[in-house]
């Protein structure tokens, strides 16, 4: 079984998912309990702008790599040999 470089891409997608989840949690708190002030709204807009830019840069850069490159190979024959003797 060949493990490709894409494993790192999927790990990055998990990071993006956690990032999105915590962003939603924080925005929920800021919108529900924060004061209706310019600072609060400015911070949320700046955060969205920076995150948008960062995600755009990340995905446009990561798209340039060939994620199907083989990283290493797992020899499944070893496991099947063990199960054969059990």
């Amino acid at each position: 079984m060949i493990i490709t470089l894409s494993i790192f891409y999927y790990l990055f997608l998990i990071v993006v998912f956690i990032f999105a989840l915590y962003t939603i949690f924080n925005f929920y708190h800021l919108l529900r309990f924060g004061f209706y002030s310019v600072t609060n709204i400015a911070v949320m807009i700046a955060y969205l702008a920076i995150s948008g830019l960062l995600l755009y840069l990340a995905f446009s850069l990561l798209m340039m790599f060939d994620w199907n490159q083989p990283l290493f190979t797992i020899d499944l024959g070893f496991f099947s040999a063990i199960f054969k003797y059990l």
Binding site: F8, Y9, L11, F12, V15, V16, F19, Y47, I50, S51, L54, L55, L57, A58, L61, L62
Partner: peptide, 11 residues
């Protein structure tokens, strides 16, 4: 991947 994960986490 490590760099962008680090930046997203920091943010």
């Amino acid at each position: 991947v490590l760099l962008f994960s680090y930046y997203l986490s920091m943010l």
